[in-house]
Design a protein around this nucleic acid. Structure first.
Lengths: 209, 209
DNA sequence: CAACGTATATTCACTGGTCAGTATACTTAA
DNA sequence: TTAAGTATACTGACCAGTGAATATACGTTG
């Protein structure tokens, strides 16, 4: 490496991430990203093959941090499973009240590129959501919930629904409504478990802080 | 009117609607709309002040038909309230399996124009969703459900969540999961009503076909 | 150990094409 | 004859991507 190859790449990605998230994909030119990163466009094209590549890298870089943030919000909430789910949505609502919040970058990119079904960025977004769904399902299975997969899907619907609705109305209280719906659905699933399911654990003694 | 003013306007709007829905807003040029409508761009600008105007008109034209379609899907489903809600989502899933389906035009436009918060198209989209929410709330109130407003919000979260998730994964079965979640939440709300609420109607005898 | 060669990393200036919107003039129905 | 409606041809800005040249670091070899 000559001077700062990796650092430059990181700087480009940081600039792209901020711009794409704030303004959208097609609204941000490659020139704008290069200017924000304080390099020339040609340098950008040295590190990324095309704008589509850059968009994919933008989402790929958000994958892990996003998942870990959501997991942390869940785990740091005290109480039983329904409370932890509601806590996740409460933290989400708090984040959505920040003036720079613009919804879910994965969903917005998918919506914007919906006419390009095979686009790499869309595949990254889909994989990201699938990972979160799989994590939720594992959590539910550990609680002995029988319809864990179905419940995980419903949580994802509420999560992504709240992203969409809050972005539309600019009213973060919808996320708290989503949290209450999540709490109800999870509580009902737990009840079904303790009636007829395998009941691998007692529900009461689950709190993590 | 010289030759066909109103017909021309309609034709432009039809072309814009098909293109904007299929490809997105910023991906479709005014030239492309004019060509699809078989007129010149100048004629388009005679009928619409700007592209933003055209985008707003595109969504405004979809407002009423969309609402009526959803209401019809609800009302044509036999059974009690939870069944009717599940039926709405089942019809939605059927529509989403059509190859030309590209999610909700209102949500996708909002996501794409999220960097222009005051854009008229976004206001039209927000009003559209609010109308649907208000209609749902009225339906729930007629059933004597006490938390009708909150339940309507949760239904909207599931609806818009299913638009987003199905667009991402191209898997319409998520809409059926959303329908089951809607059914559960509504059934629980009805149970609460019959226990402690005003119970203005008997739930059993509600079917519409 | 010093001169060189090569891969990495970066720049400036450019291309061909597209974009939203317009200046001007023609057509036709009332 | 006049105003609504349509057409041709254009503007200036912007866009994704590139060609040719340059700068820097480092291993190799004389």
């Amino acid at each position: 490496m000559t001077r700062s190859s990796e650092a430059t790449r990181t700087r480009i990605l940081a600039a792209a991430s901020r711009l794409f998230y704030a303004e959208g994909i097609r609204a941000v030119s490659v020139d704008a990203v290069a200017e924000k990163a304080a390099i020339t466009k040609k340098t950008l094209y040295y590190h990324f093959r095309s704008k589509d590549d850059l968009v994919a890298a933008y989402l790929a870089a958000r994958d892990q941090p996003n998942l870990e943030l959501f997991k942390r919000w869940f785990e740091e909430t005290p109480g039983a499973l329904p409370d932890k789910l509601a806590g996740l949505f409460r933290q989400l609502a708090r984040a959505a009240r920040h003036p720079k919040w613009r919804g879910c970058g994965f969903l917005r990119t998918t919506a914007e590129l919906a006419n390009l079904p095979g686009h790499p960025a869309i595949r990254i977004g889909a994989a990201h959501k699938k990972k979160f769904e799989a994590w939720l399902q594992a959590v539910f299975e550990a609680e002995g919930i029988s319809g864990a997969a179905e419940l995980a899907r419903q949580m994802l619907l509420l999560l992504d629904g709240s992203f969409a609705v809050v972005l539309l109305h600019r009213d973060a209280s919808y996320m708290e409504s989503a949290g209450e719906a999540a709490r109800s659905l999870a509580a009902a699933a737990l009840t079904r478990r303790s009636r007829s399911g395998p009941a691998r654990k007692r529900a009461a003694a689950h709190r993590s802080r």
